[in-house]
Design a protein around this nucleic acid. Sequence first.
RNA 1: GCUCGAGUGGUGGAAUUGGUAGACACGUUGGACUUAAAAUCCAAUGGACAGUAAUGUCCGUACGGGUUCAAGUCCCGUCUCGAGUACCA
Length: 952
Amino acid sequence: MLLYDHKAIEAKWQQYWASHKTFKAINGGNHPKFYALDMFPYPSGAGLHVGHPLGYIASDIVSRYKRHTGHNVLHPMGYDSFGLPAEQYAIQTGQHPAVTTRDNIARYREQMDRLGFSFDWDREVRTSSPDYYKYTQEIFIMLFESWYDKEADRARPIEDLVSRFRESGNTNVQAATEDDLPAFTAEDWNSYTQQQQQEILLNYRLTYLADTEVNWCPALGTVLANDEIVNGVSERGGHPVVRKKMRQWMMRISAFAERLLLDLDDLDWSASIKEIQRNWIGKSVGAMVSFPLEGRQIDVFTTRPDTIYGVTFMTLAPEHELVDQITTDAQRDAVEAYKKVTAARSERERMADVKTISGVFTGAYATHPLSGEQVPVWIGDYVLAGYGTGAVMAVPCGDERDHAFANYFANQEGMPVIKNIFEGVDVSEEAYTAKDETRITNSDFLNGMSYKEAMAAAIAKLEEIGAGKGKTNYRLRDAVFSRQRYWGEPFPVYYKDGLPQMIDAKHLPLELPEVDEYLPTEDGAPPLGRATTWSWCTEENKVVSNDDNRDCVYPLELNTMPGWAGSSWYMFRYMDANNEDEMFAQEAQEYWQNVDLYIGGSEHATGHLLYSRFWVKFLYDRGKVNVEEPFKKMINQGMILGESAFVKELEVEVEGSLEKRFISQGVNAKHLNIKSGRKLHADVSLVNAQNELDVNGFKAWRTDHATTEFICNENGAFKVSREVEKMSKSKFNVVNPDDICDQYGADTLRLYEMFLGPLEQAKPWNTAGITGVYGFIKKLWKLYHNEDGFSVSDQPASADSMRTLHKTIKKVREDIENFSFNTSVSSFMIAVNELTTQSCNSRQVLEPLAILVSPYAPHIAEELWSLLGHDESICTAAFPEFEEQYLVETSKTYPISFNGKMRFTLELPVNASKDELETMVLANDQVQEQLAGKQIRKTIIVPGKIVNFVIG
RNA sequence: GCUCGAGUGGUGGAAUUGGUAGACACGUUGGACUUAAAAUCCAAUGGACAGUAAUGUCCGUACGGGUUCAAGUCCCGUCUCGAGUACCA
C-alpha cells in the first residue's frame, strides 16, 4: 500500500478493535486504574455535529495514553436517553419515544464508531432501559427510606429515626426538615395511628411529597426545576413559566448544602464552575431575630445583626402569612390593592424590573427586641417570600435596597427618618455597605465596636434574652423531583389512603405503561393518567388493570422522574454495567473508586454536576459507595461554533415597483434604488472556501427564491458574508463529522479538532483549515514509505533525528499531562517536518514515533505499527520514555541584547560560566560595533538564557 | 449592578520561574509541474521607513501609567468582549 488510503485503513482497524475487544476493561489486576469519562449524550434526532466529539476525542487521547503508560483504563460510553425531545416528537407523530430513542442511538453509535474511540462498548448504559432504571428507582426508594441526622451530619435509615421516636419522641432529634415541626413525646408517638406516623415521617424523609410553589410551564405541560429556567423562561423552547402550587416529590438536597459547599475545595474543577456552585448554594451566616407584635412575632433573617440598632422599619413579602393579620383597618384597602397588583405580575416581569420601588405601610408596629422602640411594618415586593423568612429588618444606613425604599417613601406615614449607627459616616445620600472600616455608634452596648465584635455581641445578647439566635442560611432549595411527562422513570410508588407506599425493590423495574397519547389527560393529570393498566396489586406484586376492584389494588404514581435522575449515578453503573443482581458490586466500586477525569460542557454546572454530587454523598452515607465525590478532576470543553454564511437580499425599486435582488459581498450597490435589505442564512455546504456561493444549488435549495436575480462580482462569483454563531440546524451552519471522515478521515478530524486551540476555549470551526493537518498525516505516512512502498531501515538514526524524537516525546508527555492537546499536534508537525528534512527512515525513530501519535491518530498508527512487523495492537505498546542524553547540546544560541533590545544571536558553549561568556561576547566584533564607543554601564548575564548590556 | 474569565498578525493560535514575541497551521501573493483543473512542491508573508542588495532602524501583545538591565508575562487605573447571577436581607 503506497498511497495513504484513509478509508481502507480506518475501516480495517475499527473492525479489528471491535472484533478483538481491544478496549475491554477488566475489573481488577495489578495495573493502576484510570477512569476517564465523558458526559454521556442525549441522543437527539439531529445526530452529531463536529462540536460534539471534541470532548470525546480529548478523553480518548488521555485513555489511550494511559493504556500506553501501563494503566488499566475504564473508558465507557452510554446514553442519557430519557428526555423531552423524543416525547415532543411522540406527541406530534404518535411514534413511541422508545422507538425514536433507539433509532437515534443507532445513529449516534454509527457516527461515534467512525471516529475510532477506544470505548468499552460492553459497558454501555442507557438511562431509559428498564435494566438500568430499575436501579434509579431503587435509589429513590433508598432516599425515601432515609432521613438526615444533623448531629452526625449524614443520612441514616428511617428505621433508626422510628426507633428514636418510639423511645424519646422527636425533641432530641436534630433532623433536616422544614422549620417548626410540632414536638411530640415517645408516648405521643406510640399512641399515633399508622397513618399519623407515616404523615409525620414524610416530613423527615430525604424524598418527600410537599405542596410547593413550583415553576409551571403551561406550554410544556410540566414543572421545571430552577436550573431548567433561564431568564424566567424554560431552558428548552423558551416558554413562559408561572408559579403554581402543586403536590410534588421533593429531594432534600438542602440537607447536604454545607457538605456540597465544603467539598468543592478539594475538587480539581475549573474555578468558574466551583464559583457557580458556591453561588447556587448561597451560604450566608447571620442571625434569626424575632420582633414581637401584639402577641405575634415577625421573624427575620439578617446577615448584619451588628446593625440591629439601625433598624428603621420592617418589610414583609406581600405573600407573607402575617400580612392579613397585622394590617390595620385604615391601611387594609391599600394593602389589598398592592397585594393584587404584585400577584398579577409574573415572575418574569418582577425580575426584569428591579428598579421600580413599590410597597405599602400596613399600619402595624413591631417592637424592637433590644431597644423596645416601635418599628413600622411595611410590605414590599423587593422582599422575596421564598428566601429566609420572607421578612427583613430594614436598615437603610447599611443596605442599599432598604435605603432606596426609605428614600422613596420618605416623609410618608410610617416611614421614620433613617437611623445612622456608623460613626463618622454620612448616610443621607447612600447606604454604607463596607464592613470593616468604621465603628458602631448609637447602639447601646454595641457602641465603639467593630463589625466583627458587634456581630458576636449582638448574637450573644439576642440568644441571652431569647429574641434570636445565630443562623446560617442557604439559597439552595430542595429540588422538585416530579415531572408531568411520559418519557422518564416511573416512580416505584402507589398510594394507599392518600399516603405514598414504596414498591419493594425486588419487584422492580416498574416499567412504563403503554398510553394512547403522550399528552396530559383532559382533567390535567400527567400522561401516565391515560394508562389503563397502571395500578399496583400488593398481593401479586405486579401492575394490574385500573378496573381491578380488589382491595389489594392501589393507584400508581402518575408523575415521572426528571432528566437528572438517571445521570446522577451512571458513573458507578459503568463499573459493573451488566450486573443483573444489584446496581453494581461493592468490589467493582472499590476497585474503580470514582472518575479520574470527567470531560463535558460547563452548562451542567448547577444541574447534573450538583445533583450527582448530592446522590453520591447520599450513597456514601448509606454505605453503597466509599467515595464522597463522583468526579475528581473535570475539564469543560469549549463550544465549537459554526461559521454561518449569509446572502444579502435587497429590496430595490425598479420602474416604480419593488423587486428583490441578491447582491454579492463586495459589489457596489450605489446605482440601485434600495428600499430595504436583510440577510438570509445560506447552507454552508453551498459555500466554498473562498466564500463563493453555489448559486444554482442555492436556488434548488430555496425554491422560494429561485427567481430572484443574483448580482455577482466582476469575476462572476457570488460571495457571501460570514459570521460566527452557535452551530445549529436552524442556522444552516452545521458541519457533519461523517462528511469530514469521508473526505479526510477520522485521524485527520481528531487531530484537527485538537489543533483548533485549547480544549476549554470556545472557537469557530473552519473546514478550510483542515488541509494543514491532512497534509501532516500524509507527510507522516511518507516518512515510512519510498516510491516502491513501505520502507524502514534498521540502521541507527542520526543524532539530529534522535534529538527530534526525544524533544517530541518530552513535549507530548507534558502536553497530555497538562491537557494541552493543541500544542502536541504542533510538535508532531514540527517533528515530521524535521525528520523529512533529515531524510530519516530509521526504525529507531519511526517505531517510537508511531506510538507517540497513536493516542491522537490511532488508525494510521496501527497501520504503521503492523507494517513495522508487529502482530499485536499498538495499544499494548509502551509509551516511549524521554531520555535527556539526546537533547544535550554543546552550544546554545544566546540572544545578545543592548538596553534590553535583542540585536543578534551568538553560538556559545553551553557550559561556559558567566565570566567566560562575558569574555567571549566582548571579544565579538558585532558587540564592538553595537557599542560604537559607548560605555557599558552594566552587564547582565544569565547562563543558558541571555546576555544584556546596559550602555549609554 | 455584582462575581469570574479573557483581550497577541488577515484568521485559529504558540511563547517554563519576567529573558530572541508571532512557533505550528490556515489564508494571501509569487513561482514550479500540467493542455487545463485538482493534488503536490518551492519561496515570501506583523506594520512603517531606508537601501539595487545582503541588511538596517523604528513601532508593535486592548488603552494609559508604573516596577525592572529586561514586561505578552508582575503592579495600579481605564476600556471592550464573554460566561454566570439577578432585589438572597
